[in-house]
Design a protein around this nucleic acid. Structure first.
Length: 489
RNA sequence: CGGGGCGUGGCGCAGUCCGGUAGCGCACCUGCUUUGGGAGCAGGGGGUCGUAGGUUCAAAUCCUAUCGCCCCGACCA
């Protein structure tokens, strides 16, 4: 096995795959497009889950679970929803296997065909709204603020570990409201939660904004997203929140009695983030040494590597485990690397690949001087510090690394965000990747012409847009919106 | 679905053109020496060469079919 990873500059896609596998985040599953999330990768997901779940609860949401299998007929109820997902659903048609006649194995039992075929959920709007119909009668039943953590299946043609797999893990919030204003408020509130987790926990700067009609969720009135820039300057949609209006209520005939005893359709929102975020973290922060995980979502925040010759073994190990215990007391996720079959040099590279924010090296020379050697993953080089200061200073150091990774990502994004005045410049700039912030006349035809010519799409109509005085980069007409163009994942 | 590539010990590959006893590196196991940036030496175990047919005295190698995976494009969180 080659020692490092393919350099990013040489082949970014291969760098990504190398890092995922060498850092032991995930492996390919036996079925095309499937992924095994290994313990280290899953630990990151769990920390993300906690960060989100805490905030969902704090904003009044509760968790529930709806079934994986959905009657196929449900999918015919919301026209644009069908159109959006029909091409990529897995369908269950039978419920039994039998031994094949030639004795070579098993086969589908043709006698066990289902009356109504079942769809493996690609998303749960339909099954959830079929239930909401039963649960909602009056304005007193509203709002319903339910989230579920689940897996979904979308039969993708092209897959990539974490970014797009046939099956992935996510959360999907599905809310029901009495008024349009409430549904809109909910949609905005949750995209703000996503922004906060992305920026504060993942150190991932994102652009909050709305999607154009072309990029909107099938069945939504309005889609909000957070968009991030990856290390190859491409855009990644990291989370979405949809104002579904009354579309699903109408499709599933979900009405309620208002205070005025009027019959009205329910207003809805849905919002989700997925294991794709792990991919976002890898591509936003990783370097040619491997992962760089922001401390708040790092399964291991500090690794202690003891260095010893035989005669130093016991005093080094003693000091190392004392230090690890002291760090743990402070609530820091610490790992003492006591593997004795690997050299220190191997361990340094190994933990760098795995993106651990801080490494503490402790050897005889350090102990003689009452010092420890510190290596930060976000910067190069090592420093020597007093041993008894390591633990007390660690929480602040982790905060500093968190902030530094955010700043690095922010600087990178700023460096690769441009505001050209004419379309020729636009075309030149987009070849290099990055974001282009410019005017758009609001015409879908303009959007699709630009896509056809440059592969760039409108990623976002930023929440802080200011189209006043701007002209459309393509048509030269007065701009209706200020938008972000980019090539995207 | 179009284009390309690849299926050979756990992983990465050579061998295929030109048929003739299946090899290399890493990993693994044992022992000794090592340990401050991917340790060294010695010994050892492990593969019906994706699958199914065919040609041949003989097939990883030639022929036919088939399955799978990866990469690039059209669609998507």
């Amino acid at each position: 096995m080659p020692k490092g990873v393919t350099p990013r500059s040489q082949d970014y896609a291969r760098w990504y795959t190398d890092v995922v596998r060498k850092a032991q985040l995930a492996d390919y599953g036996p079925v095309k497009g499937t992924m095994v999330i290994r313990p280290y990768g899953y630990a990151i997901w769990e920390l993300l889950q906690q960060a989100f779940d805490r905030r969902f609860k704090a904003t009044g949401h509760v968790n529930a679970y709806f079934p994986l299998l959905i009657p196929m007929s449900f999918f015919s109820k919301e026209a644009s929803h069908v159109e959006g997902f029909a091409k990529e659903v897995a369908i269950v048609t039978h419920y039994r296997l039998r031994n094949s006649p030639d004795g070579s194995g098993v086969e589908v039992d043709p006698d066990a065909k289902l009356e109504e075929e079942l769809v493996v959920r690609p998303t749960s709007e339909t099954i959830i709204w079929s239930m909401y119909k039963q649960w909602i009668n009056s304005y007193r039943d509203l709002p319903i603020l339910i989230n579920q953590w689940a897996n979904v299946v979308r039969w993708e043609m092209r897959t990539r570990l974490f970014l797009r797999t046939s099956e992935f893990l996510w959360q999907e919030g599905h809310t029901a409201h009495a008024t349009a204003a409430e549904a809109d408020e909910e949609t905005r509130k949750m995209i703000e939660v996503y922004r906060e987790v992305a920026e504060d926990e993942m150190a991932l700067p994102v652009i909050v904004g709305r999607k154009t009609e072309a990029e909107r969720f099938p069945g939504a009135l309005d889609t909000w997203s957070i968009e991030a820039m990856m290390g190859d300057r491409r855009a990644l949609q990291a989370g979405t929140s949809h104002n579904l209006g009354q579309n699903f209520a109408k499709a599933f005939d979900v009405t309620f009695r208002t205070e005025e005893n009027e019959q009205e359709f329910v207003w809805a929102s849905s919002w989700g983030v997925s294991t794709r975020l792990v991919g976002a973290m890898i591509m936003a922060h990783g370097d040619d040494q491997g992962l760089r995980i922001p401390p708040r979502i790092a399964p291991i925040q500090v690794v202690v590597v003891p260095i010893y010759k035989e005669e130093d073994f016991s005093r080094v190990m003693q000091a190392a485990s004392a230090l690890a215990a002291e760090l743990e007391q402070l609530g820091i996720r610490v790992k003492l690397d006591d593997r004795d079959n690997m050299s220190p040099g191997f361990k340094f590279n190994d933990w760098e690949m795995k993106g651990v924010p801080v490494r503490v090296e402790l050897g005889p020379r350090d102990l003689d001087a009452d010092t420890a050697t510190l290596a930060r993953r976000d910067t190069d080089g090592k420093t020597t510090v007093a041993l008894d200061s390591v633990a007390p200073a660690m929480p602040a150091l982790l905060d500093e690394i968190q902030a530094s990774l955010f700043q690095q990502a922010l600087d990178f994004r700023a460096e690769h965000t441009h505001t050209p005045d004419d379309y020729d410049t636009f075309k030149e700039l987009i070849k290099e990747g990055g974001f282009i912030r410019c005017g758009w006349d609001g015409d879908p035809a303009t959007e699709s012409a630009i896509k056809a010519e440059t592969k760039a799409t409108i990623r976002s109509i930023p929440i802080d847009e200011n189209p006043t005085g701007l002209r459309c980069i393509y048509s030269g007409q007065p701009a209706k919106h200020e938008v972000i163009f980019a090539r995207a994942y």
